[in-house]
Design a protein around this nucleic acid. Structure first.
Length: 548
RNA sequence: GCCCCGCUAGCUCAGUGGAUAGAGCAGCUGCCUUCUAAGCAGUUGGUCGGGAGUUCGAAUCUCUCGCGGGGCACCA
């Protein structure tokens, strides 16, 4: 099943509006939302209010007429004031339960993306030290965006941009070289213990490296040190279930001549100007100096990181042919967005194909983290303390723009209260019910009679199952994966309510002695709900245990 | 000075211009001899930072002020 009930309702509503004879250009956007109040059904539209002005008639009358003209298998329509309220039909819900029970944990996936080739580049931290809890946010956000897109039929690639050619990379190799000779790293260098560890490994792996002077040793030493860091970064994100498809190196861009090509192209199309011995990217149209102009090649002849990024754009959009690229950056780089967008236009790529998601910087209660000063909490440490599932959920629950003040003590204290367990528990309960039934319920009908599902809590659960694909669609369309854990919570809530009915009255249990038909029908609902929960938890990279 | 983000319950946070603003945690009161109590039911708690505007309708859009965070390099 590919279409969500919401889509069917929407097209029926739009058809009804057209049939009222409203001129196409006068039709305002028909909003269709989930009804907040359950008395209003499952979906609601203020269509009557919207059209009142155009049609010059009372909203309630219009809403009533619209409702009369809508007849679809998914839902009933009813005019209420200026609103049209839609209510999913129980018959349709029962069919859905059977389908989801049969479909399995891929429920909610779709071909919405139609195979669009999308790259998600995220958490591309300088490979000069371990990830800390601030980076964790970008890691989880980027990975979840990628997962949601993959689930909705996009061809997704996860990429980490390895800055192995910038001044930080050189500072890093200088620090390793110093440790190799038992010296202190240079001022502003990297002082963490891992630097000395890498130096020790370099001594083993690169015999004679310490006998060379720095300039002679540097290229091999840098490659080795960054290789080691990439391994460590991959291991760290791997513990959170994140796997990059590619670790793309800045140096590879220059080997392919891509920044050079980009500069040449911009030169030909007049986007570059020479000023004060340097080459500038001209941001605006004006001939005169613009504050937004930025240096591409320094007066020393050295390119800036911006030159690399120009080549990187060519690599992404032209060499590798991504239709869309989503970059996840910390919001401290928001000022860089307009420049990259302008560069996309100037290179003929088009600014809309580059999407930048900014996530707010993570602050520690004690003050800003600094890798250089060694003042940070490693991501690995957090995973050690709290576990991957809770860490993922913790980051995922926040929208990217929300500030996040990190209080490790609070986090540790609350780790047992993490909402992820609520959802996992719901899954485990369902799995347990099915297990219990297999062992204790005796022989049951092969096919369920789903019309026996008629209790409100049963239909509420089925309703929540029906909403699931919409949450996925919204998360993918808006690139907002934080919607998923909230949807998961709703679902788990209904599962617990469904279960709890059996604690109030034994006849409302799933497995009811002497009622094989009813038991069978309820088990079908269990299976559908379990598949949905499994689908949802898997989508956000969280395990769905059968026992807790 | 200019730009971006945030400000919603005691705390952490959700909330497509729609009807009575939600969740988790914390607090209070109940519910396990029978399918998992990491659960359920009930309850307390709000000038949606202040003000103005647009609209039939604003937490949501615009303007303005305040507070907090971040950014404005021939660093990345």
């Amino acid at each position: 099943m590919r279409l969500t009930p919401r889509l069917e309702v929407r097209s029926a509503l739009e058809a009804a509006v057209r049939s009222l004879g409203v001129p196409a250009e006068e039709i305002p956007d028909m909003e269709l939302m989930r009804a907040r109040n359950r008395q209003h059904g499952d979906y609601a539209s203020g269509a009557g209010l919207k059209l009142a002005r155009v049609l010059k008639r009372p909203p309630a009358q219009i809403a009533g007429e619209l409702a009369e003209r809508i007849d679809i298998p998914e839902a009933t329509a009813e005019g209420a004031g200026g609103y049209v309220n839609f209510r999913l039909r129980e018959t349709w819900l029962r069919e859905l339960v059977a389908r989801v029970a049969g479909e399995g944990p891929s429920y909610g996936s779709s071909d919405l993306g139609q195979g669009e080739k999308v790259q998600v580049e995220f958490a591309s931290v300088n490979p000069t030290g371990p990830l800390h809890i601030g980076h964790g946010r970008g890691v989880i956000l980027g990975d979840a965006v990628a997962s949601v897109l993959a689930f909705t039929g996009h061809a997704v690639q996860r990429e980490y941009y390895v800055n192995d050619q910038n001044t930080q990379a050189r500072l890093f190799s200088e620090s390793v070289y110093a440790r190799l000779h038992g010296k202190e790293p240079p001022e502003n260098g990297y002082r963490g213990d891992y630097v000395a560890v890498i130096a020790g490994e370099a001594r083993e792996a690169l015999p004679g490296i310490e006998d060379l002077n720095f300039e002679a040793a540097e290229p091999r030493l840098r490659r080795f040190a960054i290789d080691r860091m990439v391994d460590q970064l991959a291991a760290s994100v791997g513990r959170l279930g994140v796997r990059y498809d590619q670790w793309y190196r800045e140096s590879a861009l220059w080997q392919q001549g891509l920044p050079q090509q980009a500069i040449e192209r911009l030169r030909e199309s007049g986007y570059l100007i020479d000023r004060e011995g340097a080459v500038w990217f001209r941001h605006g149209e004006e001939e005169e100096t613009n504050d937004e102009d930025r240096v591409v090649v320094r007066s020393s002849g050295e390119p800036t990181y911006f030159a690399s990024d120009l080549g990187y754009l060519l690599s992404k959009f032209e060499v590798r042919g991504f239709q869309r690229v989503i970059d996840v950056w910390g919001s401290d780089r928001h000022g860089y967005v307009p420049r990259m967008k302008a560069a996309c236009d100037a290179l003929g790529i088009g600014r809309d194909r580059l999407v930048v998601i900014l996530n707010q910087i993570v602050n520690m209660k004690e003050g800003r983290m600094s890798k250089r000063l060694g003042r940070f909490i490693p991501l690995d440490e957090l995973v050690d303390e709290v576990g991957a599932d809770a860490v993922r959920y913790f980051y995922l629950l926040r929208s990217p723009e929300a500030m996040l003040e990190f209080d490790l003590d609070l986090m540790l204290a609350q780790s047992n209260e993490n909402p992820v367990y609520y959802a996992q528990y719901a899954h485990a309960r369902l799995a347990n019910l099915e297990e219990f039934a297999r062992e204790n319920a005796g022989s049951l009908p092969a096919e369920p009679e789903l019309s026996l599902l008629e209790q409100p809590w049963e239909l509420d659960l089925a309703r929540e199952v029906a909403y699931w694909p919409e949450h996925v669609e919204d998360a993918a369309r808006l690139l907002e994966p934080h919607r998923i854990p909230y949807a998961i919570h709703e679902l788990a809530d209904r599962v617990h309510g469904f279960y709890q009915a059996g604690n109030r009255d034994w006849q409302h249990r799933v497995v009811v002695e002497g009622e094989p038909e009813l038991t069978r029908a309820r088990l079908e609902l269990c299976r559908a709900a379990r598949h949905t929960l499994k689908s949802a938890l898997t989508l956000v990279g969280v395990s769905a245990p059968d026992k807790m």
